[in-house]
Amino acid sequence: MQTYAPLYAEAALLTLRIGSCGILLSAAVGIFCSGVLYYRVPVLKGIVSAYVELSRNTPLLVQLFFLYFGLPKIGIRLSAEMCGVIGLTFLGGSYMTEAFRSSLEAVEKIQYESAMSLGMNNVQVFRYVIFPQALATAVPSVVANIVFLLKETSVFSGIALADLMYVAKDLIGLYYQTGEALLMLVIAYLVMLLPVSLLGSVLERRLRYAGFGN
């Protein structure tokens, strides 16, 4: 088992690398899109809604295949890693948007009015008053999304990225080390995902304790 551990470690790092890029970009997309939906910006609102529906109703694998195998046919050639990041961001952005949007709507309208009555404009109100409050309630959903997106990275082997599944499959197929391969696979994912999951529970409890009530 020791001989294969480095392979797994390297694969795990790749997964984390692509995963964290995708997650950060997804969060950025989510913040922007949730703002668009909250303020009902004309035109953009329709585009964002369409994007969210499209992205939430299609599997990541299909998106990746389209990016990796389909786009080269019209001259856009992206590396497998780029496809992974873009695909993950496309999928994750809509989930983050949903998480932030529902928290934004949970902030009472009169907070918004009180900030407006001090003379702040929409962007200032969003940035200093509404979004910080929404963030607290969004944490559980955001963490759930992070875990979800990290799990989704398991399909990267489909576009020939040397991630954990790829390594495991190799070991099973080439070396017939099924038992060890699967065991290490499970351990690798537990090591990656359990801490995030636990961190999420801790954060959620601490923020609730901090009590953001009036």
Partner: peptide
């Protein structure tokens, strides 16, 4: 009436 201070 409800003060509306920013809680955070």
């Amino acid at each position: 009436q409800s003060y509306e201070l920013f809680p955070h």
